[in-house]
Simulated scan of single mutants.
Amino acid sequence: MNRNLLRLTAAIIFAMAKAGSAGAEILIGMAGALTGPNAYQGEQQQQGVEMAIVDINAAGGVLGQPLRLISVDDSCDSGQAIAAAHKLVAEQVAFVVGHQCSGASIPAAGVYERAGVIQMTPASTNPRLTEEGRANVFRICGRDDQQGEIAGAYLAESGRDAKIAIISDGSVYGDGITQETRRHLRERGVAETLHDTLEPGLNDYSPLIAKLQSAGIRIAYFGGYYREAGILIRNAREQGYDLQLVSGDSIASEAYIQVAGEAGEGTVFTSFRDPRRNPRAASLVERFRRQGFEPEGYTLYSYGAVQAWAQAVTKAGSIDPHAVASALRSNEFDTILGRVSFDAKGDVRQPGFEWFIWRSDRYVPLE
């Protein structure tokens, strides 16, 4: 009788645990700029994660459990990023897609490491994020040393007979990408004529434009965010200055052309490969567009980050961060970005960067 009672009790406990597990949710965090000047790109991140969760839940969730999103705003600010990371940790999220800006991602990474939370950024390109050796950190986009290498080569080829300026907005992202571009430019035997920093947040950069014009600058490489890039080239055109602006991935957004207007036409920039051009992504891209959202920039990279993590969890058979991190580093994943894998540092092996140009209010590959 006692043995039968014990078996019955054990069976009831097992059934209750199974029922509780089946009804549980796995919490996913999204950390990015939902307010402030970079909110447009934070919205890309948000839209990508939301759609990925909808699709994964429709297919049965992860390990039979639905995913639920908790979003936090860091405004691309280091202090707010740390506070946002603590909030997600307190909510007991298993995974964070973010942060968007390198200056936010890097300080937040330590918070997630101490809490045992997997972090994967779809946008932060500063090499320091993965060079610090944290086992919980992954990057599904490229790095600034990769971006700087092709930017430096382009400037060296284009600028042999023209004076070049290199300008940073002073952010972690801006300084990182300009340093790498400058280094690769000089490795090719070409030096910039002028190296300067602008103050972000201003509404007019006419004094800097006058300085560039006075120095005879024909090509300006700008490392920073889309708002300042748009104002910079707009001010140049207002002064009748035919400056060629070259920049990085942060201007892969309609927000850039909204700021720059017609002056943005012809701006050349490096960015991640555009997964919208992949035929396999066509139906997903069309779903976004039917909802009135263009999945440019970081949208599909955010979607792909959730896919990669979900597949790693399935391979690990658990949301345990050590098991998931090991699965992420030792497998290849089928995502909207194509097949992706991660190296020992947590950097994605694919895809890389390519050149784009703004033409007729949209960006297209530079031929």
Results as ranks from 00 to 15, higher is better:
A255D: 11
N136W: 12
E296V: 09
E354D: 14
C141Y: 10
R329I: 01
V306W: 03
R182Y: 10
Y301K: 12
A229R: 04
D161R: 08
G142Q: 03
I166D: 10
I231M: 14
R188M: 06
R362V: 01
I233E: 14
Q213I: 05
Y154N: 01
V285A: 05
A52D: 13
P275K: 04
A252L: 12
L337H: 07
S214C: 14
L185A: 10
S250L: 09
Q307K: 03
G248M: 05
I28G: 06
S250N: 02
E43G: 12
T335K: 03
I167A: 09
Q147T: 04
V117F: 04
V89A: 08
A156K: 09
A123P: 12
L300M: 15
V89E: 00
G170R: 09
N136K: 05
K211H: 11
E113K: 05
L155M: 12
S271L: 14
A210D: 11
A85P: 13
D161V: 14
T335R: 03
D343V: 04
A17L: 15
Y241N: 11
D74A: 08
F272R: 14
K163L: 07
D361E: 06
L185V: 01
A109L: 06
T299M: 02
R277M: 01
G261D: 11
Q100R: 02
G103F: 04
W355Y: 10
S206D: 03
Q100F: 07
N4L: 04
R114D: 03
M120T: 00
G264T: 07
R362C: 02
Y303C: 10
I336T: 10
R277P: 04
Y301H: 11
G223E: 02
D249P: 08
V49W: 01
A344T: 10
G103I: 11
I118T: 08
L198S: 14
G170Y: 08
G61R: 00
G224R: 08
F353I: 15
G142N: 00
R359S: 09
T121V: 13
Y256P: 06
R160Y: 03
A81P: 00
S71G: 04
R188L: 06
I357F: 11
A135M: 05
G42P: 12
S214E: 14
Q147V: 05
S330C: 04
S168N: 05
I118S: 04
E50P: 09
A52T: 06
A94W: 01
I164C: 12
I164P: 05
S360Q: 15
G352I: 08
T181Y: 07
A11V: 11
G23D: 07
T193W: 01
I82A: 04
P295R: 02
V348A: 02
N126A: 10
Y241Q: 09
H184A: 14
R128G: 01
L34E: 14
I28K: 07
E157F: 06
C141N: 12
Q239M: 11
R359P: 01
V111R: 00
R349E: 15
A162W: 06
V313W: 00
S71T: 02
K87A: 13
P127I: 14
Y225H: 14
F356V: 13
I336R: 03
